[in-house]
C-alpha cells in the first residue's frame, strides 16, 4: 500500500477512464435511438387502448421495471448466446457466438430497459395534452399523423423532456454495469488499470469525475433544448 494518493496514476487513469466515454456514449445513443421511437409507439398503444399491444406494453413495463438491470444483463448475456448457438447449429452457420462483441448485448439490454422507462414517460406526457388539441387539429383538416406531429407531440415533448433527461442520465450511469459483460466502457477501463497496482481509490475518483462531467454536460444540453421548446409557455405562469 502506498501512502496518500498516487497523483500521477490519478491523472493517467483519468484519461484511461475518459477513453471509455465513446463506448459509453455509443451504447447510450443506440439505446436512445431504439427506445425513443419504440417507447413512443408503445405509449400510443396504451393511450389509445390498442388491443393486445396495449397489454403487451403493460406487462413489458412492469417486467422490466420490476427487475434490476444487472439481472437483465445476466439474463441476456447468458441466454442470448445459448439461443444463438442453437440457431446457428441448426442452420449450419459457422459463427462462434462467444466471439461476439459484448457491445451487442449492451445494445439489447439497455434498449430494452430504456424503452420500458420511456413508455411511461411518454404515456404520462401525452396524457397531459388535452384531447381537444387533437380534435381541433382534425377539425381544421389535419390528418392524425399531421396532428400528432405538429400539435400533440411538440406539447408532449415539453412535458416529457425533463424525464427524458433523467432517463438519459440514468442510462449513462447504468452502462457502468456493462463491466459485468466485459464492455470496454469507463468503469471497466479504469478498474483494469487499477488492478495492476491496487490503486483503486484513485481509479474510483477518476470514474466518479468522468461520470459527473459527462452527466452534467448532458443535463446542460437538455436544459438549453428545453428552453427553446418552452418558448410558447413563457408567459403562462
Amino acid at each position: 500500500m502506498s501512502e496518500g494518493l498516487n497523483y500521477t496514476f490519478l491523472i493517467d487513469t483519468f484519461f484511461i477512464a475518459l477513453s471509455g466515454v465513446p463506448i459509453t456514449l455509443l451504447v447510450t445513443i443506440v439505446a436512445l435511438l431504439i427506445a425513443l421511437p419504440l417507447g413512443f409507439l408503445l405509449a400510443l398503444t396504451r393511450i389509445n387502448q390498442v388491443p393486445v399491444l396495449n397489454w403487451f406494453s403493460r406487462i413489458y413495463v412492469s417486467f422490466v421495471r420490476g427487475t434490476p438491470i444487472i439481472i437483465q444483463i445476466f439474463i441476456v448475456y447468458a441466454s442470448v448466446p445459448l439461443i444463438l448457438s442453437l440457431f446457428f447449429e441448426k442452420y449450419n452457420i459457422n459463427i462462434n457466438v462467444y466471439n461476439i462483441n459484448p457491445i451487442w448485448y449492451a445494445f439489447i439490454v439497455f434498449s430494452f430497459s430504456t424503452t420500458a422507462i420511456l413508455i411511461e414517460v411518454f404515456r404520462s406526457a401525452l396524457s397531459t395534452v388535452n384531447k381537444g388539441q387533437l380534435e381541433a387539429a382534425q377539425s381544421v383538416g389535419l390528418s392524425n399523423f399531421q396532428a400528432y406531429r405538429r400539435i400533440v407531440i411538440p406539447q408532449a415533448l415539453v412535458v416529457a423532456l425533463p424525464n427524458i433527461c433523467t432517463a438519459t442520465v440514468n442510462l449513462i450511469k447504468a452502462t457502468s454495469l456493462g463491466y459485468a459483460m466485459s464492455l470496454q466502457e469507463i468503469t471497466l477501463k479504469a478498474k483494469v488499470a487499477a488492478n495492476v497496482g491496487y490503486n483503486y481509490v484513485e481509479a474510483y475518483i477518476d470514474i466518479f469525475l468522468v461520470y459527473i462531467i459527462l452527466c452534467s454536460l448532458v443535463e446542460y444540453g437538455f436544459k438549453i433544448y428545453e428552453k427553446r421548446l418552452r418558448r410558447y409557455k413563457y408567459v403562462s405562469a
Binding site: 381537444g132 380534435e135 381541433a136 381544421v140 406539447q155 410558447y232
Partner: peptide, 26 residues
C-alpha cells in the same frame, strides 16, 4: 369548421399560426 366551447387553440402556436395551420397543412 368547428368552434369549441373551451376554444381548443393550439397551445404551441401563435394566434396567427393557429389560424394558418389548417390552411397551410390541411
Amino acid at each position: 369548421a368547428f368552434v369549441f366551447q373551451n376554444y381548443n387553440l393550439f397551445n404551441n402556436k401563435t394566434a396567427l399560426e393557429n389560424v394558418t395551420e389548417g390552411l397551410i397543412v390541411g
